[in-house]
Amino acid sequence: MGLAGPSKKRKISHDPNNTKWTRSTGFGHRMLTSQGWAPGTILGPDPNNPHHTVASQVGIKVMLKDDTLGLGCKGNQEDTCTGLGDLQSLLGRLNGKTDESVKSEEDTRRKMWIEGRYGMRFVRGEVLESTWVTKGLKKEVKEVKDESDEEMKDASEQETKSADATDEEEGDESESSKTNKDKSKEKNRRDRESKKKKRKSSDSEDDEDDDSSSSSSQDRKSDKAKRKADKALRKAEKQAKRERKEAKRLRKDEKRRAKAEKKALKSAIAASSAPSSTASTPPAMPSAELEPVIKPAKKSKSLPNSLHTSGTSTPVNGRHALRSKWIAQKRMAVMDAKALNEILMIKAA
């Protein structure tokens, strides 16, 4: 804060938290210890109750608030900035994004905000169905009203089942990428599974349909269901295809990586006179380790190639190391809004 900032003089006591008192063992301390309390523990017969909060141990800590800063606002506004959106679209255009895609992005953003004369912008959040905290309960009640109980249970079972199935599949995929050999076997299985999934997904979608438009008439429902089922079939087919393609690509990746690793290993061995045991392990590791790590994080099935190259534990040395560091830094800077501001010297509005 510069000279222009308001000067708030505040006298703080020598011991504002009165630690002197906390250290003393006066009457209160004596009484509690005589009844079986030990310093550092909380009161009550059930100290391990998960519903107890920290406040039961140390009391409630608060900050004195004497300004009108909004919730989550950290005060020093100089280094945060607003209105980056426009800039990002500009950068996007510079980076070769087509005008249409930029425009559509802007449109969606505009849709998100309710803009007005008073300059308050809002982002749409969730819809509060009721002040009822548990969602499941509300749902149950709603569905009981609309349909019979059992049907609902069925639906939920189906849902969990299908969720299981997809889980399984994902697990399989990661496994499959590890084993290159039983290609055909894998493929067969995958087909079978996708068929299964097809059936299931169509089922569950039917159910969803039921849930959402239970009030609609019976025939319209069946009609719609049929259409939906068709759609689901098509979708499943597409998915199966995509999966097959994906598996292929993965395998290709794998091969490429293995090659690269071999190469790296060779060079490493050549570079370091001592054939270290650590160097021999990496080739096996990444394929096993990398996949499961990336898989759950990135839900989309295509992995950017760059991740593979940088993900290997190939020791990079000398000039290359420095260069890759620079590249990483630049990339970081572009991704981080704050750093971007510093580069472009933007001050907060």
Partner: peptide
């Protein structure tokens, strides 16, 4: 329907 501000407010 719940709406949030995109950024923290300086003066609530």
């Amino acid at each position: 329907e719940i709406f949030y501000t995109p950024e923290p407010e300086r003066d609530y």
